[in-house]
Structures are given as structure tokens and as C-alpha cells.
Simulated assay, not measured.
Amino acid sequence: MAVVPGAVFRLGSPPWMARWLESEPQPLPGAWFADETPQIEVDVPAFRIDRCPVTVAQFAEFADATEYVTDAERAGYGMVYGERFWEERAGACWRTPGGPGTGVADRADHPVVHISWNDASAYAWWAGKRLPTEAEWELAARGVRYRIWPWGDTWPPGRANTAELHAGRLDALDAWLDWWRDTCREHGPLPRTTPVGMFSPAGDSVHGCSDMAGNVYEWTATPSQLYADDAPCDAALRRVMGRYRVIRGGSWMNFRYQVRCSERMHGDPGGWSNFALGFRCAASGAGPGFGRDESGG
């Protein structure tokens, strides 16, 4: 685990980020990102966080030791993106991420997917850890100083597992759909995850954490709330505030703009999961010799 000293920092995106996103050739409206603002000052005590997302092999050890059955296994299906839209794929779960006929024998070092909030919490408890808070996750991803991505404010190719790693630069939704349809037809709707830590150290955060941009979405412990009551976000998003949990990091499915350190997603903790969603664990305290970090590092 990486040790992250306690710090006071400003959670979320500064005002210029919204203007930058509007000026970029990305397909999403500005309202999509409105829940990242305004920035709020938070005080985060020292903590530890997994350097990488929990892998298939690690989750298998837990499942074998406890006979744990995930929410997707109990439901009998998992959420998979088909050629054109999300669908409930019968038999899809962490063991068969694309549904029947798929497996994880060659994915032991990939992040586990089809993990609900309940599943992630159960694993964390078994491991003697917990899920990170949203503020802990963002601090571990970018440090005290604001950074667009874990390594900085530029996007060199090959530092993260996003759709652009596989399809090349993407600036339009139609181009993404073309790539994904071709991928599905050739390989089936399998998650395009990569081994954890594959992009280390170039893609690591200032605190030495890997895969905090892309690979898989990651659950946090934090209930979804707006940073300010008057944040100009979509009405549908307002309806899930207080009920959903914050998800961070983006995934292998996303554009570079959706894997920024301050990008927020929200998921139903009542059993929902999909084939791009995983997690990493955290633990309180940092051991002797560590204090606060208010230097902006």
C-alpha cells in the first residue's frame, strides 16, 4: 500500500476546468461535469491505499476462502455493453466477465470486474481494510496540487488504459461506437482491461499509485452529494444524491476526459455492477514518521 500523508486540499475541479472541457473536442456537454464544482476544502488524515486495483487472483483468494457469492452471481446476470447499448448479460460475473464461454484464466493480474459496492466492501473487510473515501481517492490520485491526470496536465499516449489506448485518439462519440462495434464483432463484449501496474511508473500518481486513470472504475465509501446545493447539474443526477456512492477513475471504455482525477461517477450500492467496474482498498493511519502534507506535492 502507498502511504499518503494527511493534508488539507481543495476537492474537485477549479473553474477553469469547465471552460477547458467546453473548448476541447470531447462529446459530452458541460453539465455532465458540473458535479465536480465548486471546489471545497477538505482535511484528510494520513491513510494508506492500495497501489493497484484488486486483481482477479486476489478476489479469487477471498471468494475461495469465504465461499463468497457476488451480487452479479446471485442475480444471474451482469451489465455488459453490447454492440450498441448496455444490456443484462445472463451469466456475466467476475468469473465470466463477458458471459458464458468467457473466463479469467488468463486475467489473474487484471483488475476484477462485475463488482458491486457490497462485494467490494465485503472483500475490504476480509482483507482488514476498507474502501477509500472520495477525498482520499482524489488526494492519492493527484496530490495536494491540482493535476488533470495523475502524472500531470498533458496527455501523452500510452500512460493509461482508456479506449484511446486501443482505438487511437477519440474526439467524437461516433468514432468510439465504431471502435467498440468492431471490437465486439471480433472478440465479443469482453472488458479490455490490462494487468494492474502495466503503466508504472510513467502513469503513476505523485503518491505512487497505478491505474488511477482508466483500466476500471473504482468504488469509494462516500455517499453521492453535490459539493454545493446550487451546483448546475442535471436533474436526474440530483435525484440520486444521498442514495448512490461515488465512483472514481474512469475505465478502459472511456475518453481521456473521463479519466481525470476530479471526474465523478455515481453508482447504486444496492447490488449494481458492470464489466468495467472494480475497486481498491484503503486503511486508516500511516504508521510512525509520517505527518501532514500541505506543501502542494
Rank of each mutant, 00 (worst) to 15 (best):
I115G: 11
S116R: 02
N118G: 15
A120H: 01
S121R: 15
A122K: 09
Y123N: 06
Y123M: 04
A124K: 03
W125A: 06
A127F: 03
A127W: 05
G128P: 05
G128Y: 12
K129P: 03
R130L: 10
L131W: 13
E134T: 03
A135P: 01
W137N: 06
E138A: 02
L139K: 05
L139P: 12
A140C: 07
G143F: 06
V144I: 09
V144F: 07
R145T: 13
R145K: 12
Y146R: 10
Y146C: 06
Y146V: 03
R147N: 10
P150Y: 11
P150N: 07
W151Q: 01
T154I: 09
G158L: 06
R159P: 03
R159I: 00
R159S: 10
A160M: 12
N161V: 02
E164S: 02
A167C: 05
A167G: 11
A167F: 02
R169V: 13
L170W: 11
D174R: 03
A175L: 09
A175P: 05
W176K: 06
W176Y: 15
L177T: 00
W180Y: 15
R181E: 15
T183L: 08
H187T: 03
H187D: 13
G188F: 03
L190H: 00
V196R: 10
V196G: 05
G197S: 09
G197V: 14
G197K: 07
M198N: 07
P201E: 09
G203S: 12
G203R: 10
D204A: 09
S205C: 04
G208N: 04
G208D: 11
C209S: 01
C209V: 11
S210E: 04
M212Y: 14
G214V: 00
V216Y: 09
Y217D: 15
Y217G: 08
Y217R: 10
Y217L: 13
E218Y: 01
W219T: 02
T220W: 09
T222H: 08
T222Q: 14
P223H: 07
S224D: 15
Q225N: 05
L226E: 14
L226K: 11
Y227G: 08
D229P: 06
A236V: 02
R238V: 12
R239T: 12
M241K: 03
M241G: 11
Y244G: 08
